[in-house]
């Protein structure tokens, strides 16, 4: 595992907003997700929506940012901006890469794609979160999860 040059940084803008900056290292993802979950408990989402939907969705966004957006470069970093209000969490994940077009990713549920080991990350984000928005460049994704809306499980 490469040694990252970028240290962790956590800033609380106010009790309902926080910024995490993490090293570009996949081993940092689980800790980053747990810190984000801790920041989002005040949203009062159902436990499994925060502990499952949000954790999986954020893990996908972070791994895409680290592995593809930043290309695994240990000199780069990933920024997570969290906004929390009652019944809603928003997480914006931004990398330092040149972006991509998320609409070019094939549907992993097509019969020919089911046996493939990869290509499910963006699909899972969209399936588990209520909203997923990319910026125009494609290097920043915003995940929105609300209480009592359609996203399953």
């Amino acid at each position: 595992m490469p040694t990252s040059a970028t240290p962790w940084r956590t800033s609380f803008v106010n009790p309902r907003a926080a910024v995490l900056e993490l090293p570009n290292d996949i081993s940092a993802i689980e800790t980053a997700v747990e810190r984000a979950v801790h920041c989002c408990t005040s949203a009062s989402l159902a436990r499994n929506r925060l502990m499952f939907n949000f954790r999986v969705g954020l893990t996908e966004a972070l791994s895409n940012a680290i592995l593809y957006g930043n290309g695994g470069d240990p000199q780069k970093r990933v920024r997570v901006e969290l906004r929390v209000r009652s019944g809603e969490v928003r997480a914006r994940v931004t990398d330092e890469g040149s972006g991509f077009d998320p609409d070019t990713v094939p549907d992993p549920r097509l019969p020919e794609n089911i046996p493939r080991p990869d290509g499910r990350g963006i699909f899972l984000m969209r399936a588990l979160m209520d909203e997923v928005h990319y910026n125009e460049l494609g290097n920043s994704v915003t995940l929105v999860l609300r209480e009592g809306t359609r996203a399953t499980p």
Binding site: V56, S63, P115, D118, G121, F123
Partner: peptide
């Protein structure tokens, strides 16, 4: 198990 991401699913496929 708490949760599995797409990479975890991928490794099971592999």
């Amino acid at each position: 198990t708490g949760y599995i991401d797409s990479s975890g699913l991928g490794i099971l496929v592999s």
